[in-house]
């Protein structure tokens, strides 16, 4: 006779735990894991957007072997991408190489966007069809990936970079692979 109470109590406890962690920002039932983390960057090759230099998996791995690279998928039509522009700029100023993949964008729109919010990118690859993004498991923009010296994705964030996520996630990840 105690079984229903036990079940209900267990469910209630779990719900409370979820709400509690949601309120603390530690639990987001809507977030997604990217299976690419811990794996080699997928094979691809893209031309540059406009005058910027494009890149492929080989270029990326080569550059990352010297210094870990932050790969940022962005688009000029994306509002949260503008929100993270300042943070990207400060990371670039620190000397962290940031390589961009422009997702379903045009040269003109992207140029205007970069003029307006600044261009922190060392290279910009043009993924007009959005197919490379799918290979990376990207499901929206912006998303950021950290590539280590051996070409393995070490860290991933879906959504705009914030001061908080840089401090609590990106920096520890950078330290770990330094």
């Amino acid at each position: 006779m105690l079984a229903p109470l036990g079940l209900a109590a267990a469910a209630g406890l779990a719900f409370w735990k979820m709400l509690d962690r949601m309120a603390a920002g530690k639990f987001d039932p809507h977030a997604l894991d990217n299976p690419l983390v811990g794996k080699q960057v997928p094979d691809f090759s893209l031309t540059g957007l406009g005058k910027a230099k494009g890149f492929g998996a080989a270029d990326l791995k080569q550059a990352a072997a010297a210094k870990p690279v932050l790969v940022n998928f962005y688009a000029s039509w994306c509002i949260p991408c503008a929100e993270e522009a300042d943070i990207l700029a400060s990371l670039a100023a620190e000397g962290i190489p940031i390589w961009a993949v422009a997702y379903k964008d045009t040269e003109a729109a992207s140029g205007e966007f970069l003029n307006r919010y600044g261009n922190p990118y060392a290279r910009i690859a043009n993924d007009a069809a959005g197919r490379v993004a799918i290979d990376w498991g990207v499901y929206g923009v912006p998303e950021s990936f950290l590539i280590d010296r051996s070409g393995i994705v070490r860290w991933h964030l879906a959504g705009p970079l914030t001061e908080d996520s840089v401090r609590s996630e990106l920096r520890p990840a950078l330290r770990a692979i330094a």
């Binding site: 809507h30 977030a31 509002i79 949260p80 923009v141």
Partner: peptide, 8 residues
């Protein structure tokens, strides 16, 4: 979570 603008 990405909100508006990040989808397409």
């Amino acid at each position: 979570m990405k909100m508006n603008g990040g989808l397409g």
